[in-house]
Design a protein around this nucleic acid. Structure first.
Lengths: 149, 149
DNA sequence: CATATATGTCAACATGGCTGACTTAAAAAG
DNA sequence: CTTTTTAAGTCAGCCATGTTGACATATATG
């Protein structure tokens, strides 16, 4: 538990200086990260992932849209939905922000070795609520989940 | 990175209802947790661990002391230092709060197996800044670190 | 004695959660 | 075609927990 605390603390600490330049906070980082990882994600899906309220998200998402880091377009099939994408500008910022973290992760993986990495991922998956664990299933199970959506 | 986000999100989500009963937040949980794990910790050490400012800590720590969850006594050798301990009441609360988390961790460990657990811990250690990594060294290295303090 | 260190405190401010109440547009159900 | 449900957005206000900066006090150290 303590390890997890320190690892998470140090893992998330670095990007803050970059964010400050844009007058953004960690919440913005999370939004940019997940929109980057899941292009065409809807607002509801993003809310589910972040586990926060619509009102909280809207403050942050609104800024990102107004300042041109994210664009919305409506889903053709269901025009109530807004699909979110990073703009070029958004992608730039995402890369800047995640660069440190990716490097840190890569370093940790390299010096731990492939077996440790597998164990790391297995335990993390088990820590996640069953509801969301499916996102990270491997092989056939993942295919099933994907097709269900 | 995504796995880590979800695991941390779910791992930290549960104790909030209990905390709410005492009108406490997550910050109180962290303080109670670390004082519980490191009896006689000083205020400075706690600040280092939490990575927050003295003023932020003081708000939370002050409440916990006033409400009888933590006591301070001065260090005999250096009477400027205040050593922090959980009271019986504090220990009760700590147990309540961490119970879910310990169970979640135990479940994750059980279904992942001993090897995965080793890998998990190895990668987490590597993710931590070198500065704090020493806390978690094993065997002889750990003894050295301990004796240096 | 002078300086450095550990702790505490006051004030003001920012971020990012929350609840509650409502609106609008579109889809789905009847 | 009307009603209901769903997805998204908005306004207002509250709270927890970070931040900076300025100081104060007690004690240890040089």
């Amino acid at each position: 538990m303590e390890l997890l605390f320190f690892a998470y603390r140090d893992f998330t600490a670095e990007p803050d200086q970059i964010l400050a330049r844009y007058k953004f906070g960690r919440a913005h980082h999370r939004v940019i990260y997940f929109v980057g990882r899941h292009p065409s994600i809807t607002v509801s899906e993003l809310l589910d992932i972040l586990g926060i309220t619509k009102q909280s998200l809207s403050r942050v998402l609104g800024q990102l849209i107004r300042e041109g880091f994210i664009i919305q377009r409506s889903d053709r099939r269901d025009r109530r939905r807004r699909l979110l994408e990073l703009t070029d500008r958004g992608r730039d910022l995402e890369r800047q922000l995640s660069e440190n973290q990716r490097q840190r992760m890569a370093r940790a993986y390299r010096s731990a070795g492939a077996e440790s990495v597998e164990g790391f991922r297995t335990v993390l998956r088990n820590l996640i609520d069953a509801r969301d664990r499916a996102r990270f299933e491997t092989g056939e199970a993942a295919a099933k989940v994907a097709s269900r959506r």
